[in-house]
Amino acid sequence: MDGEGGVIKKFLYVNRKAPYGTIYALESLEVVLIGAAFEQDVSLVFIDDGVYQLKKGQQTTVDSGIGVKDFSKTYRALEGYDVEKLYVDKKSMEMRGLSTSDLNVDVEVLDDAQMADLMAQQDIILSF
């Protein structure tokens, strides 16, 4: 799908909610996957409890555990959709006792100023 007459905008997806407790993380990912077809300049950031979306080793299926599908593997598939810019807020990660080795995808870790800069550069921000 073409970018609507060649327009390419910077789209930022802001994820600030933990997975499973609410549906926001999953439905946010669904937007990212559909949006990838529009060939826009896409970035994803994970802030606050949003960093838990990327935690390694999530274990649940429709038939076991909490009875909900584990969708965390989809983050690993994003690269195949040319969605490669994933950023994590340093402070949110550290506050939660996590490091990049706890995450199931490669991310770039941003400090406060870098995150603020990234947000300020966007055209469209979809918040979840």
Binding site: E4, G35, I124
Partner: peptide, 12 residues
């Protein structure tokens, strides 16, 4: 309609 309508809404 589909989620593409949201992306298009952002583009347009």
């Amino acid at each position: 309609s589909g989620l593409g309508q949201l992306i298009e809404a952002g583009i347009q």
